[in-house]
């Protein structure tokens, strides 16, 4: 065999790939499920926090800011490990899925709260005053006037952050979650062949490349000219 053939045999071994394809597909489905859950719960929680913050209740706001700061300072992997290996000592043993979902949702919550909040504060005071002067209450003003403008501003930074955090589902492999990377890694050690990793890499690209291209499109569509 030539070097090239050896290389192909190692990294693009059709037999190994065929054998582990079902595993990788299962891992991909799990990754998709997890990613959707994280995006949904993380962004929703972030939006809720930002809305609570707009009520300007000082002790509550200080708490929100502190929690957000903690979640932005800690590496997501540290949070996952802390939940998975730490919480059993407190009497609750979350699964790998639960730990990963909870951790990444919290992280996305923190980042999206910051982004939403920046969006809300960026809307000029005159907008509040104009709406309130027509008799709209705080809530209706926020929902009908402020948020629609703020959300438009936040869409590009939020998309980028969401991609970065949902890619973190791969971290679940550290807590025995059988998502793509977990499946691929165990397939590599079972088959003594790296082809499953290539397959897994391809799965990530198929999942995320369209999202990244969509993000690029969103960025140009909603970009701000300085």
């Amino acid at each position: 065999m030539t070097g090239w053939d050896k290389f192909l045999d190692a990294f693009f071994n059709a037999k190994v790939m065929a054998k582990y394809l079902p595993d990788i597909v299962a891992g991909t489905l799990l990754t998709i499920e997890l990613a959707i859950l994280i995006v949904f719960s993380g962004i929703l929680a972030g939006l809720l926090l930002a809305l609570v913050r707009s009520l300007s209740i000082r002790p509550l706001n200080l708490l929100i800011i502190f929690v957000v700061d903690v979640l932005r300072s800690l590496p997501p992997l540290v949070i996952i490990v802390l939940l998975y290996f730490g919480l059993p000592s407190a009497g609750w043993s979350p699964s790998g899925f639960m730990s990963t979902w909870l951790s990444l949702s919290l992280v996305l919550m923190a980042f999206s709260e910051e982004i939403f909040w920046a969006g809300i504060t960026s809307i000029h005071k005159g907008q509040w005053e104009a709406a309130r002067s027509t008799g709209l209450g705080f809530g209706p003003t926020l929902i009908n006037v402020i948020l629609p403008q703020a959300l438009r501003l936040t869409i590009a930074p939020l998309t980028n952050r969401t991609i970065a955090i949902t890619k973190g589902t791969a971290l679940g492999t550290v807590v025995a979650l059988h998502e793509i990377l977990g499946m691929a890694s165990s397939a590599v050690s079972n088959s003594y062949n790296p082809s499953p990793l290539i397959l897994g890499s391809a799965a990530y690209l198929i999942l995320f490349i369209p999202v990244v291209i969509a993000a690029r499109w969103i960025e140009t569509k909603y970009s701000w000219k300085r």
């Binding site: 190692a10 990377l181 790296p194 897994g200 990530y204 993000a215």
Partner: peptide
């Protein structure tokens, strides 16, 4: 740029660490 925005860094790391020895 788009490739690395789409590719999880951990997967890249494992690919280098666990994959390259086979080469």
């Amino acid at each position: 740029v788009d490739f690395f925005r789409a590719f999880p860094p951990l997967v890249l790391l494992v690919l280098l660490f666990a994959g390259l020895p086979f080469a």
